[in-house]
Design a protein around this nucleic acid. Structure first.
Lengths: 197, 197
DNA sequence: GGGCGTAATTAACCTAGGTTTAGAGAAGGA
DNA sequence: TCCTTCTCTAAACCTAGGTTAATTACGCCC
């Protein structure tokens, strides 16, 4: 798709924070990613120096443990920055993969020079702090739910938070988001159905 | 204890970030808190406009669910800022209490005017973003451990991360940090002892 | 020393959720 | 049309950790 057009979206996204960015510096490094369902932007264990901007579509962050179990940490909707803050700031391999849940479009740009330039811009740094605050708060709520709520409650929470996904996303992935096996989720769903009557 | 002296520590803490702060504005609002073991700086459900700086000692962040179960989210050592970013930025009641694990000293100051002034200071905003990044990374690792590791593994992780606490902290609180009951922890400990032989 | 409150252990029992295996639909491809 | 593959459901069984309750151990105050 049109790189010009997508870059436009990225610029608009940052405009809302009144950050003063010289995009010309990155023109040559910006890459367009057309994703089909199941394609990955970033793979667990990979080192990447890029941040991504999700222009359209939907992705999930998931990780796989040594024992082969999959856990979906986050589901992110466009428009949004996506990427591993941790991997970029500590320059370590990513702890999770980022996978498209539908067809999606994203662009990538190199984080270091961008962050270098941006950390001189107060408006941007403020916006970045706000971004971190918001994902932090989300993470805190998810930790809370994982520890304090039963699987059934977490499923109901998921249905409340993502009403548009509860019927379109495969149940395996819903199960992986709430931290249980698809089999347990199936049990919970039939249990809920019989309770309703 | 000497307010002057503790305030000095707070200023030194921010000096390391080269933030340019006019402390005179807050002199009258700064309060000193001398904490005994078990005293709380902040109580779950309370609204507070203050941020705290832990000058000496050790605190834990814990929350109690409706069903009366306690969960320790974080253990924080001095010197450090402590408080609920979430409660302050959204001006909502705190989701957790902050309790001293030993005798500790802290000072409090009003967050809003401070943050207002500080968000004009690039060095401070950068430092704040780094602070958020660091607690975010910690939270991500804890979420990961809670989901992927067994209670036994989480106990071993705790012993690795807090070697100085594993014998001094009451087992109830260790259990609450790793998200199990004290009874389960006792079982795990005897299990580990017999395994060693 | 004797009582008392708190913390830690132990054992018996229970339950949520994992594991394994099998089968039922739906969807595509030759 | 049949065959394959993928997703979901169902049932039998297992296990980690929760629950309850009784027992012991360790201060601490009188």
């Amino acid at each position: 798709m049109d790189k010009q057009y997508l870059t436009q979206q990225l610029m608009q996204f940052f405009d809302q924070y009144q950050a003063n960015i010289n995009w010309d510096l990155y023109q040559t490094d910006i890459q367009v990613h057309m994703l089909n369902k199941g394609d990955c932007l970033l793979r667990q264990g990979e080192r990447s120096a890029n941040m991504f901007f999700l222009c359209s579509g939907l992705v999930r962050y998931y990780s796989v443990s040594e024992s082969g179990k999959e856990y979906t940490q986050t589901i992110a909707k466009s428009p949004r920055l996506v990427g591993s803050t941790r991997a970029l700031t500590l320059s370590q391999p990513a702890l999770f993969s980022i996978e498209a849940l539908h067809a999606s479009t994203a662009i990538s740009f190199p984080w270091q020079p961008f962050y270098q330039q941006m950390s001189q811009d107060l408006a941007f740094t403020q916006a970045y702090a706000m971004f971190l605050e918001s994902i932090f708060i989300h993470k805190e709520q998810k930790e809370h739910a994982m520890v304090k709520h039963s699987a059934t409650q977490r499923y109901l929470d998921f249905c409340r938070d993502f009403p548009e996904l509860k019927d379109t996303l495969p149940q395996q992935q819903i199960a992986s988001y709430i931290g249980i096996t698809p089999i347990a989720l199936s049990r919970i769903r039939t249990q809920l159905k019989t309770d309703q009557r």
